[in-house]
Design a protein around this nucleic acid. Structure first.
Lengths: 159, 159
DNA sequence: CTTGAACCTCTAGTAACTACAGGTATTACG
DNA sequence: CGTAATACCTGTAGTTACTAGAGGTTCAAG
């Protein structure tokens, strides 16, 4: 992360994976998973083979969690962490990554807005009769009745 | 689907899975997958064990594809198909399904809008210096700098 | 010392496909 | 009619980002 670790004092408190998870807003399983895929460094273990963490881990995990909340992919988070670990470097790459992500978010927003509008139209035009007269089914059956929603490819496009 | 199949004329043209896929805007693998999970009925086979389809399959698959474009889950599509297959029934369930989906879409839209706004703010405030001064990294490091984006749980929330 | 919570590893499951490997069928061309 | 390109077949594994569970160990409190 941004701050270089101050030489850990001998009195530094170590916490377990449960407390780390609570502090940073995720589950112990997720923490282990992040360690497994290399987003978090392998934690030191105590005598009984349990992971011990310092507050540096809380900061790193919070960063990860927060970037994920923004919708950055795990691979993007990996890159952001790599950048954050090198505070002297120019932040152009960070900027580029953020802008690319913003563009994706905006594209999703546009699609989702079109979907919402069309859903609303469908629902408003349903007269409440039988399925045979239902405008919702009509729109889904016939793309010509739909004005805005275009086909997409892939499961992650809508969300 | 809505129309009961007119007794297939002896001159009806049969098409292969590739043409069906092209006509309905998906891939042959996806068609086989939909058959496997029961969204499409098992297609009759020719002498050489290849699937043969009629235009009814094009309509059904188009319906599926279109509903998926709207973001309905496969399970929701299954229910919609079941309803569409019974045109005499009241369309209240269709309506309910569509409204529930609309509510989900609107929730997603709200989250995504918050993400977009915050991303824009982050990017605008980046002065273009080093990573150490980068506002983007700051916001990701410290939730207090972020005004709108809240934590979520689950991979599908943002998209 | 015992009990219950927290922790460990490993495996499998989720959604909705997509991509291959290794083989067969059909079709077009010469 | 032969052959080569294309389309098709089955079955399995990979994708994303986790989550859930089995079956066992360790820790902290009383």
């Amino acid at each position: 992360m941004k701050e270089q670790k101050p030489a850990p004092s001998t009195t530094e408190r170590y916490i377990g994976i449960g407390e780390l998870a609570r502090e940073s807003g995720c589950k112990p399983e997720t923490v282990r998973y992040y360690e497994q895929i290399g987003l978090l460094p392998s934690a030191p273990r105590n005598e009984g083979n349990q992971r011990r963490y310092t507050t540096a881990a809380i900061r790193r995990l919070t960063f990860i969690r927060h970037a994920r909340d923004f919708g950055f992919s795990v691979e993007a988070v990996r890159e952001l962490l790599e950048m954050a670990d090198h505070p002297a470097m120019p932040c152009q790459e960070v900027d580029t990554l953020a802008k690319r992500h913003l563009a994706e978010v905006e594209a999703r927003l546009a699609r989702l807005t079109a979907v919402r509008d069309e859903l609303q139209r469908m629902i408003n035009q349903c007269a409440g009769g039988s399925v045979g007269q239902c405008h919702i089914i009509d729109v889904l059956s016939d793309h010509r009745l739909c004005h805005q929603v275009e086909p997409h490819g892939g499961a992650d496009v809508i969300g």
